[in-house]
Design a protein around this nucleic acid. Sequence first.
DNA 1: CTATTGGCACCTAGGTGTTAAATT
DNA 2: AATTTAACACCTAGGTGCCAATAG
Lengths: 238, 238
Amino acid sequence: MKEAKLLFVGRLMKEAELEVKLAEEKRPKAGAESRAGGVQVELQGSELWRRFHDIGTEMIITKAGRRMFPSVRVKVKGLEPLQQYYIAIDVVPVDSKRYRYVYHSSQWMVAGNTDHSCITPRLYIHPDSPCSGETWMRQIVSFDRVKLTNNEMDDKGHIQSLPAEGVQTFSFQETEFTTVTAYQNQQITKLKIDRNPFAKGFRDPGRNSSSFHLEDPLESQDFLNPTYVKDPSGNARP
Amino acid sequence: MKEAKLLFVGRLMKEAELEVKLAEEKRPKAGAESRAGGVQVELQGSELWRRFHDIGTEMIITKAGRRMFPSVRVKVKGLEPLQQYYIAIDVVPVDSKRYRYVYHSSQWMVAGNTDHSCITPRLYIHPDSPCSGETWMRQIVSFDRVKLTNNEMDDKGHIQSLPAEGVQTFSFQETEFTTVTAYQNQQITKLKIDRNPFAKGFRDPGRNSSSFHLEDPLESQDFLNPTYVKDPSGNARP
DNA sequence: CTATTGGCACCTAGGTGTTAAATT
DNA sequence: AATTTAACACCTAGGTGCCAATAG
C-alpha cells in the first residue's frame, strides 16, 4: 500500500511553511512563455487554516508518522489540459531558530539554533502524479495522507529532487506551523478537537461549540455522519 | 481518493478468469526480441486460490462494488529495470452461458446464454502505473482494492484499451470464478468466513477450524490481531 | 419462483488527544 | 525540567456475510 510520509527533522522548530510545487513532465522547451500561462493554485479550507494560524498552528510529529490537520487541499487552474504534470508539496523551514513555548505568556520564545544545512529536502509527490492538466483541474488535489515524522530513517513517498526547469512553487502564509511532540497551546488542542472528526471522542458533550461552523464542508464532514440519519431507536427489524 | 472498480455485467455468469497484463511505456521498437526477455508473473497465494477453485470459486458482485477474496497478488520477474511499465488486470468471460446452481447436486447447470458482445472490455490499471521494472519487481503487486460491480454506470479506475503492441498477458486457471449476488455453495461461504479477516464475526467460536492453516500469511493475517495481545481485563487506568 | 437489494451486527484498519512513563 | 515515547479509549471509515424485503 502506498503510504505518504514527510520527514520533518528537528524538535521545536518554529515556522515551517508548506509549498505546493508543480512540474511539467518532459517539457518540450524550457522557457518563460509557457510559464506565463497563468497557473493558479488556490488553497482550500483557508478559513480554517487561518483560524489555526491566528492562534499559532502546531502540528504533532511522531516516529510512526502523524497526519496534518488541517490537511492541504488545493484547486489548480490554468494548466494545459493535455500536458502531463507532477504535483508535490514540500515543508520549508522559515528560520534556523529553535523555539520554546512559554505558558504564562502564551508565546513562543527563541531557545537556540538549528542546523538546517544537514536536512535533505524531501518532497512528497502526489500519488496521482504524473497526470494530465485536465485531470488535475477537474478535482480538488488533496494531500490528506501525508504524514509528518521525526524518524530520519523514514523516507517513504519522497524523492530527492524535481527537474531544475519548469517547476513553479506556490506557498501559503496561513499554512505556517510549528512542529511539536505534544501540543503546547491549549487553544490549538481545543480547535483540533472541535474540527478533526477523528478527535470527536474528546469533544465536550455539553457545549455544541463550533460544530455548526461549516465554513468548509471538506474539512468538517459531520453532515455525512450516519448517526444523524440513522433510526435513533436502534432496533433491528422483526 | 482513487477507487478501483471492475464492472461485471450479467447475473450468474459462470467462469470468468483473471488476466494480468503488462505493457511497456513508449516502447522504442515493437518486436519479438525484447519480449523474449523472459518476463515471469507468479500468482501469490495460489494455494488458497486453488482451494476455492476445487470447490468452485464464487465472487459476490454488488451495485456499490465488492472486493474479491482472495485478492490478486503477483510477483513479477524478468523486467528491464529502467523501462517503465503499466500493469493491469482484466476479467475475461470463459464462455457465453448463464448458469444456475442446483442445490441438491451441488452443481452449476447451464441455464441460458449471455450476450457478451455488448460488454466493453474494462481493464483495471494498477494505481502505481506507470512504474519502473525495478520498482515493480521489488515488491508484490497487489490488486486488493479492486471491486466487482454490476452497476453499468460505474467505470472508475478503468481505461478502454492498452497499446496494441508490447502487451503481454498472463492468465491463471485457479482464478476462475462465478459471479453471484448471494453465495450459492455453502462450502464457499464457509471457506470465505474462515479465511477473510473481515468475516471473522461469522466464525464458529467452537471449532478452531483452519485458523492455523497459515500457508499464506498475506491472506490470513490473524497473527496481527491485537486481540491476542491486549490486556483481557479491559480495565482503564485509574 | 429465483435473483437482487438494503439494512444490519460484527469485524479490520487506522486516525485522535490523553496520560504515565521513559528519556535527555 | 523539558521533551519524547508508548499504550490506551474512543472515534472514523469501510469490508464481511446474514436476513428480510423487494424486484423480475
